[in-house]
Design a protein around this nucleic acid. Structure first.
Lengths: 152, 152
DNA sequence: ATTTTAACCCACTATTAACCACTTATCTTA
DNA sequence: TAAGATAAGTGGTTAATAGTGGGTTAAAAT
């Protein structure tokens, strides 16, 4: 699935006393005028929050609509991804309030790391991300498989 | 994957007090007008930084966009490669500021060596590169294997 | 009605990027 | 080969903006 969005980079911030998080200006500036500062934030597959610009989210919704609810896997998957989806806007300063349910899910304390992953933005507990960095590596075999698809 | 870019040569510089690095004029001049002084700098596979002109990087990005984030291997791979990718421009003087994360990764101190490697430019700690030069040689067997692919 | 919560607005600070000026090197031409 | 001219590389200052904190008002809930 191709997208107009190609978020990249890593940025570290603190969540403030009002549970506000700053979206890095570099990523914020990429938001199209069509998206009007509006985005969807939901549970990531890992223990982080995923942010999609609203137009991007609508594309995903279209794909999700193709999945039949007769399949149990589909039902669970759809439920988990849709029930935690919040439509938000960032304020004049480029911040938004992170919903409590996502603070819990992503174990957000104070130090957060925001990373761009093409069509989405991930919000992580900084120390959690560092841990995963060390433990979850791509093994050589998987790299070999990837090398057949991606020429980097 | 063939490219319009054929960077070659080796150049030595100092990184200045503001973490600025000069891109050698010889390489800089090759940047197409389409690239508008814009490039992506990211982690190399060795302990150096890789610079891709933005149009080159977009080719890579297109390939990355084909990978679904529902696969765990894909997620890890995408995260690790994209989070360290910074989109930058060089200034009027032909310099750019090297992000701290890459200074750390490539152990950049003061003396740096910039080398052209076809479609990308590598930024090295000079002494580190010299060390690797001595220790990491291509053995005869590997050369034989290469000879089947490259006619030099 | 009172308390709590969230949205909005304003202001300060720190960082970054743009700008300017100078030195050194290279190229050209007499 | 020398001298001028042009380009490359280096350093610092200024201006813009990104990030942060807090206060006020509006809304919601008890």
């Amino acid at each position: 699935m191709s997208s107009q969005y190609t978020f990249t980079g890593q940025y570290t911030f603190n969540i403030d006393s009002k549970n506000r998080i700053n979206i890095p200006a570099a990523l914020r500036k990429q938001f199209s005028s069509k998206d009007k500062k509006t985005f969807v934030i939901t549970r990531g597959v890992d223990n982080c929050a995923w942010i999609y610009p609203i137009t991007e989210w609508k594309k995903i919704q279209n794909e999700l609509q193709q999945l039949s609810s007769l399949s149990k896997t589909n039902r669970i998957f759809l439920r988990n991804h849709l029930r935690h989806a919040n439509i938000l806007k960032f304020d004049k300063q480029g911040r938004f309030v992170l919903p409590q349910s996502l603070i819990d899910y992503a174990s957000i304390k104070k130090d957060i790391t925001i990373i761009g992953v093409l069509n989405k933005i991930e919000v992580w507990n900084s120390t959690l991300l560092q841990k995963i960095d060390k433990t979850e590596k791509v093994d050589d075999q998987s790299y070999d498989q990837l090398s057949e698809r991606v020429n980097i």
